[in-house]
Design a protein around this nucleic acid. Structure first.
Lengths: 205, 205
DNA sequence: AGATTTGGATGACCGCGGTCATTCAAGGGC
DNA sequence: GCCCTTGAATGACCGCGGTCATCCAAATCT
């Protein structure tokens, strides 16, 4: 017996799916922080113990939900980038991309979900690899744009482009964190744009 | 009766002090996240209900502990700044100050306490004003240095110095947050210095 | 001094996230 | 076909942070 499609394995997968989808639905309605494990297993029609057979913790389930969302977000960013006119300067493209990401976080993901995500990141028992990995699509996106900037002579060449991408994304994350703390008197998009103006000026050739 | 030194008020203050000091001691030994409210009240010799008479929540107590620490940290930064030779350029001073703050966070405050602090910041029911307030000593410190930079013609004048101070401190917080998530493969001081080099270049006249 | 109000202190209680000994079909090995 | 192993499923149970009706001594009012 390996990972065959036997009756047992199939039933287990089905149970996991039911828990995941129940959680997804409840989280969509109330925000995952207001949904208890008890309510998830009740909605899924399984026992609490069963939840912990399939998920390490509530935070781990949350991370799964977020990671799915992260991947779909990156697809949005990619199509935004591809929708931009080819003649734009790399400086302007980076500014617009940062603005698009700010908008997406503010209107689609929303404050309470960002807070949950960042708390999950800070909980050391949780694997948030897929949102933090340098292999994440978002890093590739920034790297591609920066590479073009170097090729066209707009950007300094003494720092590798993947390092620059890390700095820029880290900056967006930092400002978003600050926004989570200082909301509502702090405006995400405005601050991202102001900060990027300073940062990108420091990257010009 | 106003806020007189009557017997009742004094006894209440004494109770609060005992809880606070018990928490401080236990937190020092094990880290506040490994100390339960039950263990604090047991050590202080009071009931659990009494804890919640004097503190809104465990997180609120944590915030108090952190805020005390924050103020003492800012004193350290101020004396570091005053220990620097007067002839240094503002650029170098800012780099050294950022480096000092990184060192302090890494070796004195330490990772697990920064994680607790940032989680507290993300919990909306908690007042973390004293660490986040723009009146915090740290903001004054940066503002003073930046002002000198403008006066000496080292820095651009189109952005107000208090705005610049906010950007720089936000950047340190962002990098520290990234460090909390990516530790141990991410080096705080190194990253702060690399990022500041880019950022400060964007502020030069 | 006696009656009334105030507010610190109490501990049983709650729902939470998480654990674990136990159960019991489904799946080999012979 | 029989026996042993595997692992999904279970729910009573735990310690946690937090609540609240109740108590009662100190403070104030008359």
């Amino acid at each position: 017996m390996k990972n065959k499609n036997n009756k047992r394995t199939l039933k287990a997968a089905e149970t996991k799916r039911r828990i995941y989808e129940a959680a997804q639905q409840l989280a969509l309605a109330s925000g995952i922080e207001n949904v208890s494990v008890n309510s998830i297993v009740k909605a899924a029609g399984v026992s609490k113990g069963s939840f912990y057979v399939h998920f390490e913790s509530k935070d781990a389930l949350t991370a799964d939900l977020v990671n799915d969302y992260t991947m779909s977000a990156d697809l949005t960013y990619r199509s935004f980038l591809e929708s931009l006119p080819a003649h734009e300067s790399v400086f302007d493209i980076l500014m617009m991309l940062a603005g698009e990401i700010s908008d997406f976080i503010e209107t689609k993901i929303r404050l309470e979900n960002m807070r949950v995500l960042y708390k999950a990141h800070l909980t050391k028992t949780i694997d948030t690899t897929s949102a933090m990995s340098y292999n994440r699509e978002l890093y590739k996106l920034f790297t591609e744009v920066l590479e073009r900037g170097v090729r066209q002579g707009e950007l300094r060449e003494d720092l590798p482009v993947d390092t620059l991408a890390k700095h820029l994304i880290m900056a967006i994350r930092g400002i978003t964190f600050e926004w989570c703390i200082r909301h509502p008197e702090y405006h995400l998009k405005e601050q991202v744009e102001d900060h990027f103006k300073i940062l990108l000026y420091g990257l010009k050739k």
